[in-house]
Amino acid sequence: MEIRLAGISRPEALRYLGMRGPVPPDVDGDLDRCEAILRRSVCPRGAWRCFDLCPDGTLSGTAFRPEGQSVRELLRGCSRAVLMAATLGAEADLLIRRAQGKSLLDAALLDALCNAAIEDVCDALCADLAREFAPAFLTPRFSPGYGDFPLSQQPLFAAALDLPRRLGITLTDSFLMTPQKSVTALIGVSDRAPAPKQGGGCAACSFSDRCLYRKGGATCGR
């Protein structure tokens, strides 16, 4: 399904560019121009599906059993799990690739804006899901490649959501998604309120020992 791209978080885009402090007006203007290009070309899409959780942790009707301690903690107390995926589509990759032939600055700005946009798209999709599943509770979303949720489970994830057909997302040998501005994530569905800090956060992140934000005393906010 198509997802409307409401706001693209500018602070998020600036963070990807490594910018701190007040934004010079010319950079702000360039970002406005690139955001307009992005909005004209990109049509974000998303897909999701809810599965019952079997006692062994397998998603009912699939061959997919999400692995790892972080997933087990995320899904503790959950009876169902939602698999979600979102993408900015091939147009976003093409836009960034083509910009590189003309202006590396534009390419870097577009890349940062796309990174921010796909997060915004995921947030919008998750907000829809929260309404959809109310009064049940949803855990934060958790993606393969974070914590000990192995990226090698992406093929099972993709098959369970039929991603090539529904969103045009395919995987490389090393389980990276193409188009690149794509996200897959697992969300637990529970009938009772989740324990605070369940899932997400630095503790669950495999980057935590080398994260530049943490080194600088901040977090990436996830």
């Binding site: 091939a90 990759d93 093409l94 690739r97 090539p164 395919t170 995987l171 490389t172 040998d173 193409t178 188009p179």
Partner: peptide, 10 residues
């Protein structure tokens, strides 16, 4: 084939 072709894919 299930894998994106060049130039966007491998």
């Amino acid at each position: 084939l299930g894998r994106l072709m060049e130039p966007l894919g491998p």
